[in-house]
Write a protein that binds this DNA or RNA. Structure first.
Lengths: 350, 350
DNA sequence: GATCGGCGGTTAACCGATTAAGGCGTGAAG
DNA sequence: CTTCACGCCTTAATCGGTTAACCGCCGATC
């Protein structure tokens, strides 16, 4: 605690294109053109410039470049998470990983801000865009009638929305067909013989929650299953446990439960075991989003898997297209795939 | 898939200080000074300028500001994770949350890049710093003889290292006393009556792994416990399960195991149950880093808890001090606290 | 032989903010 | 009555790169 760190000071003037120009004996503009692959520079000169730039360890000053009307080479992502939900979901780390991969290949960087609510998230986008800090944005946690959508539209900020087109307005959506995944799962459970299936869902306000809710109800109707009332949670283990307990202690106890994320599913598994129910003999469980977590518990959880990394990558790629002015349609990613594991089986004969 | 999103184009020229100056009838400099709280502007003028700026929705162009030698108002973090480890650890999301909180309160933003190895992480820092995109950096996953440390020192980039001072060179360290936590845990296990304790650790190259390894060996010696060879993993559930299986099937089976993260501990718990051992009667488990995950499994895991959010916040605060040129000492955070839960008990009488 | 069209460059102006240096009243001190 | 010090503001120059406009030269074309 005593040692004072003394970071050496010499801010060591960085070389600029003017330095390179002087050394090579040409004008700044030629250097700029050469370094940017613009025409109007002979190959010989170009090579000389490249060599000197390399030797000097030249790095473009992005501020100056941005000031001259060029791109900022960055995109923004404001993540709205109340503190306690942070870190509970592997989903976002993976999504960010996928986004980052594409961006860094294009030498773009990601400006990330974790905020407490959508209001402040919008502020972040507004500030970044106003400051010309970003060229585009990615919007997550899309809600119904999301106020951020019209706001971003009005700002003219190129934006990709991770969420269903029904809620993305004129912004570009990247989404997956959650309804199909729900249907597939329900058909699977029905085929196993289940007649009473419960659902423990995520936050009500989110678009994808609503879509899954609807698909669930529709599938129950189509397959002639008893539709238990869906229970909504905040994705935390505590609420997942509470909701599961409620469902399992109700008179019409379900023989299978579909969860909206892995954390609540794992919590539900513990609750079932506490109550003396064995999984999958007495109760089947299905988790949304596969993860190491879903695989290490006993029994391993049947899950709706999707390649989240690729999902993020698609979103980033779409955004880069949008920024570059290339014609962009929304992108529908692959629907989550049902991966049966040890947590699902036929219901107990009664 | 057919709908082509047509983000409205009018890039709508943003107001600049020149616009404000023209409207108010003063010079650009006065506007700049007024908006930055610099002296030399009368209160009346200042108020008028503020009003016009507000009305126009003026946002400072950070590129221009950065170009003029001011701060970039951003710090960089390059996260080195092989793709498959991404999202497995809640640790980083929480850490980032804490960092972000402090930064955004200071109107700083975080440039984040997820890279595959340290080499590319260093490249990111170099590019950001060269481009004047960041004012400082945070270094994580500190390794022994980490090549990034001398490189960053030489670059003169203000950097806070999250890791033990022994490996941070002249950069500023922010760390917690892992050795003390290991000691506390071992004393606790010894007091319960355990004599043979195993340890399933993280990556060998990391500084904190080495420190914990040493503390573990020292504690075993001091307390007269059998020192089983430490098994190193990559923090994934698979390796945690494999290592646990190996340990439990060895002739000198331990009665307690200390894990280096929560994922491996949960995997270990499943393995124990598979092998017919009940926890904590036959085997005690301790996880490093508390998390919702550690609490939802049955039995809930005894864990070494620390406030990761605060840890990140301290690092960010230290970095801001460093950037501002305030005298900075390293910061030693609170040591992880042992939180006993249901996964630890006295060993079986033999 | 005069004209046209590129190529390979150049100079000038500009992006939007900041810092440095200076000017002009006014009131107080000498 | 001068002189000095300030308060309030202005002009000029600068950061590092990009874009626009223009220029001389050489070979091909008519």
């Amino acid at each position: 605690m005593e040692q004072v760190s003394q970071q050496q000071s010499p801010p060591a003037k960085r070389p600029t294109i003017a330095d390179i120009a002087r050394i090579v004996g040409v004008s700044k503009v030629s250097v700029s053109n050469a370094l940017n692959g613009q025409p109007g520079v002979s190959d010989a000169t170009r090579a000389k410039i490249a060599a000197v730039a390399e030797e000097l360890g030249f790095v473009r000053n992005s501020a100056a470049r941005a000031l001259s009307g060029a791109k900022a080479a960055a995109v923004g992502l404001a993540l709205c998470r109340p503190a306690r939900m942070l870190g509970t979901e592997p989903f976002f780390m993976e999504l960010i990983g996928g986004i980052e991969k594409v961006l860094s290949d294009a030498s773009y960087s990601l400006a990330l801000q974790v905020v407490s609510d959508h209001e402040r998230g919008l502020e972040a986008y507004r500030r970044w865009w106003g400051e010309r800090h970003i060229d585009g944005a990615i919007l997550v946690d899309l809600r119904r009638d999301d106020a951020r959508v019209p706001a971003l539209e009005e700002m003219g900020l190129p934006t990709v929305v991770i969420g269903h087109p029904s809620g993305s307005g004129r912004l570009t959506p990247v989404w997956s067909d959650d309804a199909a995944a729900v249907r597939e799962t329900m058909e699977y459970l029905a085929a196993l013989g289940h007649r009473r299936v419960g659902r423990i869902a995520g936050l009500t306000g989110l678009v994808h929650t609503a879509i899954r809710d609807e698909a669930f109800a529709a599938a129950c109707a189509d397959l002639g299953l008893d539709a238990l009332p869906t229970v909504h949670t905040d994705y935390t283990g505590e609420e997942g446990a509470r909701a599961t307990r409620r469902l399992l202690l109700s008179p019409a106890r379900p023989t299978a439960i579909l969860y909206d994320n892995d954390i609540t599913a794992v919590a539900g598994l513990s609750v079932a075991q506490e109550l003396g129910l064995s999984v999958p003999q007495d109760l089947s469980l299905v988790a949304w989003d596969d993860s190491p977590l879903a695989q290490v518990v006993r029994p391993p959880l049947t899950a709706l898997s999707r390649d989240i990394h690729a999902y993020g990558a698609h979103a980033a790629r779409t955004l880069l297209d949008l920024i570059a002015g290339r014609p962009v349609t929304g992108y529908e990613d692959q629907a989550p795939q049902l991966t049966p594991r040890g947590s699902t089986a036929a219901p107990p004969a009664r």
